[in-house]
Nucleic acid binder design. Sequence first.
DNA 1: CTATCGTCCTCTACATTGTAGAATTCCAGC
DNA 2: GCTGGAATTCTACAATGTAGAGGACGATAG
Lengths: 113, 113
Amino acid sequence: MSGDSDWAPLGVFEEQTLVAVLRTRDEAYGMHVRREIERVTGRELAIGAVYATLDRLEAKGLLQSRRVASGGPSRRLFQLTASGAGALHETRAMRERLWQGVDLARLLTMARG
Amino acid sequence: MSGDSDWAPLGVFEEQTLVAVLRTRDEAYGMHVRREIERVTGRELAIGAVYATLDRLEAKGLLQSRRVASGGPSRRLFQLTASGAGALHETRAMRERLWQGVDLARLLTMARG
DNA sequence: CTATCGTCCTCTACATTGTAGAATTCCAGC
DNA sequence: GCTGGAATTCTACAATGTAGAGGACGATAG
């Protein structure tokens, strides 16, 4: 069965969170990740939602965190692990298969009723 | 805030289901939708999972169903509503924003550890 | 030195989605 | 009328999504 690992597919919010971490790089701590997700999705977000997800992702080994001081309460900086990057990549690949061959123009037309 | 509607984002499985319906068109009844999702995602799927989702999507008005006979128990054929097509389209648009500017080559590199 | 302010994180609780599988209904043909 | 395959319905539970109150930390004004 080749390199076919047994993914639990990432949830939508998990994917958004992982990408936000990837994007913000050295600034990937809770509050900042939240702002980034809000920016991209255009909707407000409770801070608890972000940390809950960040924690779950870390528990699964897709993220890793360390504490750094910064004049104020210490920040918890996150970064992707190799597994995290792999999961993101797989998620993209699967979605590409999902949409392959779908007629987007038709979709648009249908959306107009 | 322009035409910014307040739709709840589609879940991963909801999206897969909607696309499977879109794809299978006139053959979009439960068992067949299931096969289509299995084909695309490469993993097996309990039939109950499919119907539960199909029902929820119909309840939200993203799908619509009608019964048709077919030599055996009648089939429940699904099709996208305009809202359903719109939700799919929005989902794609948001994901595009999400990933815009992300360096995929770097992601791949990270995935290799 | 202590009150208070802004920043950031922790915790708890609950709603929505995701997932499974047993039970049931329906025709067809024997 | 029984049996078998195809299809759906029902019930239950796990995982993810979401919210917000509360607590810890350091800076600094008084």
